[in-house]
Design a protein around this nucleic acid. Sequence first.
DNA 1: TAAATATATTAACAATGTTCATTATATTTG
DNA 2: CAAATATAATGAACATTGTTAATATATTTA
Lengths: 197, 197
Amino acid sequence: MDNKEIQEKRMRGYFIEATREMLKGEGLKSINVRAVADRAGYSYATLYNYFKDIKELIFICVQGFQEEAETFINSKTKKSKPGIERISERTKAYIEYFTQYPGIFELFFLEKLNTLSGKQPTANLIFTFYDRITAEDWEYCVRENIFTRDEVASRTKILKYSITGILLMYMNRMHPESYKDFLADVDQLLETGLRTK
Amino acid sequence: MDNKEIQEKRMRGYFIEATREMLKGEGLKSINVRAVADRAGYSYATLYNYFKDIKELIFICVQGFQEEAETFINSKTKKSKPGIERISERTKAYIEYFTQYPGIFELFFLEKLNTLSGKQPTANLIFTFYDRITAEDWEYCVRENIFTRDEVASRTKILKYSITGILLMYMNRMHPESYKDFLADVDQLLETGLRTK
DNA sequence: TAAATATATTAACAATGTTCATTATATTTG
DNA sequence: CAAATATAATGAACATTGTTAATATATTTA
């Protein structure tokens, strides 16, 4: 990588970091070309020397946040017992990450990806995220004859869809009204998805 | 209601109808003050004589769409057998309505309601919609000893959350990739939510 | 019909995304 | 090192959209 590439990468990094901070802090609605460039220490026009448009910049952040979320989930479930118990705890950590950063949830699930460049790969990345987070433990369940492969396929889907749904409703502040009730519903979803026959 | 009120109501109706048409057709992103006013046959500024802002106008449409959706669902399930079967069919009709009008789904579930005036009542209206659509048949199930009240509470939640989740993922064109696969997953959710013990 | 009132419209401003010509800076070359 | 050249950063400018204020038009009333 020659000097030019290094410098360009660095520049892109400044803008990406500024966008990340704003997404984590005030969320998507606070993002605009001038604010991001300001925070990065450059003029709004400079941004266009390094990115096609502001959407590209936002969309680049998705991957980084997934890595961050995964690290968070790993650190929270280091000592968990493999299998059902760890799926439950990793799911809760997954939820905790998003409730901590509503702007990131918004970016992942509410932003209509059609509008983002390079749509398809990102959409897939997001869609398969929960699967990747829990895959290892579902495998464990199959190996230990806790569930059949078919059961795993069906339970994964139910959990993925219902967890996404409850997050959506809670994040839009629709329901449940309190964090406590929200967590109780999450527990119930996990109970049904993991422990019932 | 005196003349003035009649006329005012009529004027509001023109703007609301224009907004409805655009939401059903091209969705939220096509809505802007000038386009709505154009379609209604007035200047953009006239809109402000009848509505606080464009958000109020959009938000007024929610209730109308719910009534339309309910009518659609009723007409699709006139002959269904009460109970589990009708819950299943009404849920599918509910899904069909939203897949037919992605803009309305977007308005109901993706639009951050914080930004809409009169937030809370609308949020509640949306959150309880699926419950209202299926309430009668859940009652039937309790009466006929098909489920206990507790089972109903838990099953309703699972279905509501997972149906919302799968709609979200499908509508954002993330997954499943084909309508057929999507319907298959819906069937599976219904199967699990309604027929398993 | 003329004055008073209500309503609709045009003009104008602010915020935001984007492009481009110009300016400033860094690099190369004689 | 100084001039020439390439590169990068910037401000001016335009388009779109939401919104408000001033103006024009229509309606009502005396």
